[in-house]
Simulated assay, not measured.
Amino acid sequence: MPVLVSNLQEKVPVESKLEEMLIRVVEKALGEHDIPENAEVSLVFVDDAYMSLLNQQYRGIDGPTDVLSFAMQEGPDMPGFEEEQLLGDVVVSMETAQRQAEEYGHSFNREVAYLTVHGVLHLLGYDHQTLTDKQKMREQEENILTRACLSASLIREN
């Protein structure tokens, strides 16, 4: 499963160890949902300024958010692309992740892993608009993080 990682920011250091862990988390999330081996996900790290631009452009909301997902599988299949399955992009604000890690009392790596799983689940069609959907999504997030060896309870309100 190709996971492409792009770091488009310089404000928060991103070590190769973190990238490797996040690739493992994405692979675990996709594997838990029987996604084909040729599925591709892009993981993009940005700063708050860049995330603010994306949030305004695509959601009409001023200011940064922690994670945005851009699914590629929402429309009809394009001819000639049967060999590849481009799931989409998960964009994480590393500055927001750093603040939230401190606020929630867990590590930066744990927060970025959580945001990555959250974004991947959105690519797979999960949402949290209703209480039932939110509970299903939170259970999936915890299960995936636990199976990827990042167990520990997350206390989050979204």
Rank of each mutant, 00 (worst) to 15 (best):
L53V: 10
E15M: 04
V46P: 02
A71F: 08
F108Q: 01
H106Y: 08
V12N: 01
N7A: 09
E84D: 13
G119H: 01
V92T: 00
I35L: 13
S52V: 00
V120S: 06
I35M: 15
H106S: 05
V12T: 07
G75F: 15
G75N: 14
V91I: 01
G60T: 00
G105P: 00
Y114I: 03
V67S: 04
E20W: 04
E32I: 09
H122W: 07
L8D: 09
F108N: 02
E111K: 06
T116P: 09
E19P: 03
Q98H: 11
L115K: 00
A71P: 15
E37G: 09
M94A: 08
R99N: 08
S93K: 06
L22M: 05
D89A: 04
E15D: 09
G80F: 07
A49N: 08
T116Y: 04
V46E: 00
L54F: 14
E82K: 12
E20T: 13
A71V: 05
L30D: 02
M72Q: 13
I23T: 05
I61H: 10
L124E: 05
L87D: 00
S6D: 11
L115D: 00
G119C: 02
P13W: 08
D62R: 09
P79M: 07
P13A: 12
R24A: 09
N38Q: 12
E15F: 03
A97F: 06
Y50L: 12
G119W: 01
E15C: 05
L121C: 06
V112S: 00
I23Y: 01
R110D: 07
M72Y: 14
T65V: 14
G31T: 05
H118M: 08
R59H: 13
R110E: 05
V67C: 10
D62W: 11
R24P: 08
D34K: 09
S16W: 04
E32Q: 10
A113S: 05
G105F: 03
V117D: 02
L53Y: 14
N55Y: 06
H122V: 01
Q73F: 09
H106N: 05
F81Q: 14
N7R: 11
E82G: 10
H118A: 06
H106L: 08
M72P: 07
E37K: 12
Y114H: 06
L87G: 01
M94R: 07
F70D: 04
D89M: 04
P13M: 07
N38H: 13
E74F: 15
K17D: 14
G75R: 15
S42W: 08
D62H: 12
E37T: 13
L54Q: 12
V41K: 01
Q9V: 08
H33T: 09
V91N: 02
S42R: 05
L8F: 12
P79T: 07
P36H: 10
A101C: 04
F45M: 02
